[in-house]
């Protein structure tokens, strides 16, 4: 079976559209709520879902995502719980799911065990923030569960080529030096760097880290094949409660971001 991520980008390419990828932290505020938030995100225009498996020491993340992970762990999120959550989302939807996490939770679960459990639950890819491809010796499990590769503004061109060679699904370009979190502007080097990466791969390129507003999403959508918005949504979720209409709050916040991403046109 083809990976849902490949199918998704094929479809969007035919429609000349940019993918919108929201990030949320599983278990924040609860795992049950995460399933409902996922449905709301899809209704609001999400093409791919990036789902955080919370870790106690997320050193690539800014304060919004750190606090979300803390809330999720305090609320009782476990690795098995998050995989159950993936399973529930999968029962109601075919949206591609990328699990976003750090290496230690996966190592404790067992590398091979985690790959088969995540695949069985319905996840499509894994993005491990602190696992550069250099340290990945066992790639046997990545056929069904893609490993999304990160490229940073500081990655030299020779390394871009190496990373791109082992990439599947899409490449995630980190749009700026720094941790996740909202920023006022989009880094001016993004277009040039995305162009450079394109010269080394035919895979779609997603751009994330720091994109929080509709105008920023439109700006990046002109260059990239996918736009990732994380901390801004996470922060919004932290301010919503069930009694205030959690799902409706998420939908109304995300809809303009998704729409801004999907505006046709561009120079890709």
């Amino acid at each position: 079976m083809s990976n849902r991520i490949d199918l998704c980008f094929e479809r969007l390419r035919a429609q000349r559209q940019t993918a919108f990828i929201p990030y949320i932290c599983a278990g924040d505020p609860t795992l049950d709520a995460t399933c409902r938030i996922a449905a709301a995100l899809e209704e609001a225009g999400a093409d791919i879902l990036e789902l955080g498996l919370p870790f106690s020491d997320p050193l690539a993340d800014g304060i919004a995502n750190q606090l979300a992970a803390q809330r999720a762990l305090a609320a009782g999120a476990t690795t098995r719980g998050v995989l159950d959550c993936v399973r529930s989302i999968r029962r109601q939807s075919d949206i591609p799911i990328v699990l976003y996490t750090y290496l230690n939770p996966i190592l404790q679960f067992g590398w091979a065990e985690f790959h088969s459990a995540a695949t069985e639950a319905g996840a499509d890819a894994l993005l491990i923030l602190d696992l550069p491809p250099d340290e990945e010796t066992d790639q046997s499990a990545t056929d069904s569960l893609f490993h999304i590769r990160l490229i940073a503004p500081t990655t030299p061109e020779a390394r871009i080529a190496t990373i791109a060679a082992s990439a599947r699904g899409f490449i995630y370009y980190v749009s700026r030096e720094g941790v996740t979190g909202a920023r006022a502007t989009v880094e001016s080097s993004v277009a040039e760097r995305v162009g450079l990466i394109r010269s080394h791969t035919k895979l779609p390129i997603a751009v994330g880290f720091g994109i929080s507003t509709a105008p920023q999403a439109t700006e990046v959508a002109r260059i990239a094949d996918a736009v990732v918005v994380g901390s801004a949504i996470v922060e919004r979720i932290s301010k919503l409660t069930d009694s205030m209409g959690l799902e409706e709050g998420v939908r109304s916040f995300v809809r303009p971001l998704a729409a801004a991403t999907k505006q046709p046109g561009g120079m890709k």
């Binding site: 550069p132 340290e135 030096e177 720094g178």
Partner: peptide
């Protein structure tokens, strides 16, 4: 080993 975010690798 080197288990860090890509931004630091270089």
């Amino acid at each position: 080993g080197m288990f860090v975010p890509e931004t630091l690798m270089s």
